[in-house]
């Protein structure tokens, strides 16, 4: 008898799980071992937390910088993305014009985004030229005292992501539920606050969570547009990792390990919250 195609046994999950598990698992274990001195490039293993101690304050400053960048850019992306989504679901005309633009921004690689935001916001950039401000009078948005350009680039890209995710989650059923709410007596403002926003909330939270994790682990944007000190974790780790001093490798791994741990902790905190909100239905 010919066999029916498997409808969805665990067997079908195996290839994806094996590839993901093997790659992510090996890499994580290797970072862990390197950070604790168990996997030196040359010589005998020297177990211990020496790498963490050597990094000291830089590690904490880097973590703080990463968290600040991720938090600010996520808040901004969520606000702009949500506003965009609300406009997109409101009218087909807006959807045609703004929709193509958000999809375009979504497909721009972050590195290209960082390059062009640099060309826009630096002292010699487009904005000071068009506003007629001399480069010396222009605030140091790129590489200055605050990671302004970094946050703006991440918020720019991720707001497009948030907008598309929220729009997709709303478009299916919003019209019907809006009509029901209207005939139950809800006016336009109540429909927004009591129907649209709660319906969008799970998608907004999920996409903001993903945006936060991306921003937290992103290297190239902060490397191109950020200040020299303190460096966020990815920049700190990569500088140490590519250093000629081989002793710096465990320190790079230590920074990477802190990054992995914090990211997993954030995800672990976010997932139950999202589940309670009904994401993943």
């Amino acid at each position: 008898m010919p066999r029916a195609p498997a409808r969805g046994g665990a067997r079908l999950l195996l290839p994806a799980v094996v590839v993901t598990g093997a790659v992510a698992g090996t890499a994580t274990v290797s970072v862990l071992m390197t950070a604790f001195g168990l996997l030196p490039l040359v010589g005998a293993p020297t177990p211990g937390a020496a790498a963490f101690v050597a990094l000291g304050g830089d590690l904490l400053l880097g973590l703080r910088e990463s968290l600040v960048i991720a938090t600010l850019s996520t808040l901004l992306a969520a606000a702009v993305g949500m506003a965009t989504a609300l406009l997109l679901v409101r009218s087909a005309g807006v959807r045609r014009r703004l929709g193509a633009l958000t999809a375009t921004v979504l497909s721009v690689p972050h590195l290209v985004g960082a390059a062009t935001v640099g060309l826009l916001l630096s002292g010699g950039g487009l904005l000071p030229r068009w506003l007629g401000v001399a480069p010396t009078a222009w605030p140091e948005l790129v590489g200055g005292g605050w990671p302004v350009a970094v946050v703006l680039e991440l918020a720019w890209k991720e707001s497009a992501f948030v907008a598309l995710v929220v729009t997709a989650s709303l478009s299916r059923r919003l019209t019907d539920l809006q009509e029901v709410a209207a005939v139950l007596g809800a006016d336009a403002r109540q429909r927004l606050l009591r129907v649209t926003v709660p319906l969008a909330a799970p998608a907004l939270l999920a996409s903001a969570g993903i945006a936060f994790l991306y921003a937290f682990g992103s290297y190239e944007v902060a490397w191109l547009l950020g200040r020299a000190y303190p460096e966020p974790l990815p920049v700190l780790a990569q500088r140490l990792f590519s250093s000629i001093d081989l002793a710096a490798r465990p320190q790079a791994a230590a920074a990477a390990l802190v990054g992995i741990t914090v990211a997993l902790a954030v995800a672990a905190l976010a997932v139950p919250l999202l589940r309670r909100w009904g994401v993943g239905r």
Partner: peptide
């Protein structure tokens, strides 16, 4: 597990593999 990579910083995993 399949969603996990979203939470793992790429620079960190890349370093782990390079080692």
């Amino acid at each position: 597990l399949l969603l996990l990579p979203v939470a793992l910083p790429p620079f960190a995993l890349a370093m782990g593999l390079d080692v």
